[in-house]
């Protein structure tokens, strides 16, 4: 049954790709991350109404998106995990951040309301390492004077599927905890020392909602939609911040995109008094010398339109649009890099 499913998936993906490139030449074809799929779909819908050009986006996961752009079956790939500059150079591709969101810790402790409790990076890492096992542990109590914490076992929940959310979460934990960095590491899926895995954001959300004493991490939109109890975080500057589009935007604004190569920057643990420490950007990957300059141009026009007209829609879905300064950098990078016959196609 497994084999049959795997084969079926491969067949479907191939069929989808063939269909995308041949029959729908006018549409933009892309594949990758599931995290930005809702906003890409919304943008695409509005863009189609305006221009008649549709977007055929397969939200198959960041890993799948990278595979498909490497196989050149799509015009752009989308990934929550930025590719390293040397990997992009080897491919002859560039990447840029498209939209941002935040990862938030969610808990289910009797008597604790959203935002009532706070955690810091080291404590969060110790919980996920299995070093802190009770909610009334001294480390948590010290951060939360005046909050009544029960003597309850902590049930850790994490994503079971490979995920850009996990990548950004583990990146943050490794950044703040040397033990996490050496024992677990940073990846889209890792060998979790403790806890149970839920499939997708909805799986983690369900586990946390149902299990008393549990903690999990989900994208901000999921925490809001499911009315989950999120916690505040102590950020790099030692200030306590609540998750919101403002604190995500603050993290992005303080991030120094201009000094990066190929926008290789992970927004976790950015400086700034208002920065949410688990902010994440999602990336688009395209070739510098595209197979079809016309297809790439169509895609770039869509991204430009989304940057300029899509902010409100992004806000409605709890995503954070990129700041104008970053958009200027991105479009300059298009001009400098994406070329046909030595001439840049974006101008």
């Amino acid at each position: 049954m497994t084999i049959r499913k795997t084969l079926a998936r491969v067949a479907l993906a191939t069929a989808g790709a063939v269909f995308a490139t041949s029959a729908m030449a006018a549409d933009i074809s892309g594949a990758g991350a599931t995290f930005p799929y809702p906003i890409y779909a919304k943008w695409a819908d509005a863009y189609k109404k305006e221009t008649g050009i549709g977007l055929n986006y397969q939200s198959i996961g960041s890993g799948g998106g990278i595979k498909q752009i490497k196989a050149k079956t799509v015009t752009f790939g989308a990934s929550d995990k930025p590719l390293k500059p040397e990997e992009l150079d080897a491919m002859g591709a560039i990447q840029w951040p498209m939209v941002m969101g935040g990862v938030v810790p969610v808990v289910n402790i009797p008597g604790i309301k959203p935002g009532e409790m706070k955690l810091d990076g080291a404590t969060l890492a110790d919980i996920y390492l299995g070093k802190i096992t009770k909610w009334n542990d001294a480390a948590i109590a010290k951060l939360n004077p005046g909050v009544k914490l029960p003597k309850m076992a902590i049930a850790v929940a994490h994503r079971s599927d490979g995920s850009g959310t996990t990548f950004n979460f583990t990146y943050y934990l490794a950044d703040v905890s040397p033990a996490w960095k050496s024992d677990v590491g940073v990846e889209a899926s890792v060998e979790w020392p403790v806890g149970i895995g839920g499939k997708g954001n909805e799986g983690v959300a369900a586990t946390v909602t149902q299990t008393q004493g549990s903690i999990g991490y989900v994208e901000y939109a999921y925490a809001l939609q499911n009315k989950m109890t999120y916690t505040d975080m102590v950020n790099k500057d030692g200030k306590t911040v609540a998750p919101s589009s403002d604190t995500f935007a603050a993290a992005a604004a303080n991030a120094d995109w201009s000094n990066t190569k190929n926008f290789y920057l992970i927004l976790a643990n950015q400086p700034g008094a208002d920065s949410w420490p688990m902010t994440a950007a999602t990336f688009i990957i395209m070739y510098k010398k595209p197979e079809s300059a016309a297809d790439s141009m169509t895609a770039l026009k869509f991204f430009d339109w989304a940057y300029k007209n899509g902010q409100k829609m992004a806000g409605e879905l709890d995503y954070v649009p990129m700041p104008t300064s970053v958009i200027e950098l991105v479009e300059k990078s298009w001009m400098d890099n994406i070329k046909e016959g030595g001439k840049s196609i974006w101008n």
């Binding site: 049954m1 497994t2 499913k5 795997t6 998936r9 198959i60 996961g61 960041s62 890993g63 799948g64 990278i66 595979k67 079971s160 599927d161 490979g162 995920s163 889209a188 899926s189 806890g195 149970i196 895995g197 499939k199």
Partner: peptide
């Protein structure tokens, strides 16, 4: 306790396996 099976592991991880 939580565990995993062969087919569940493949379903969970195949898409993002690089």
């Amino acid at each position: 306790a939580p565990g995993t099976t062969i087919s569940a592991s493949i379903a969970n991880e195949f898409t993002e396996a690089d």
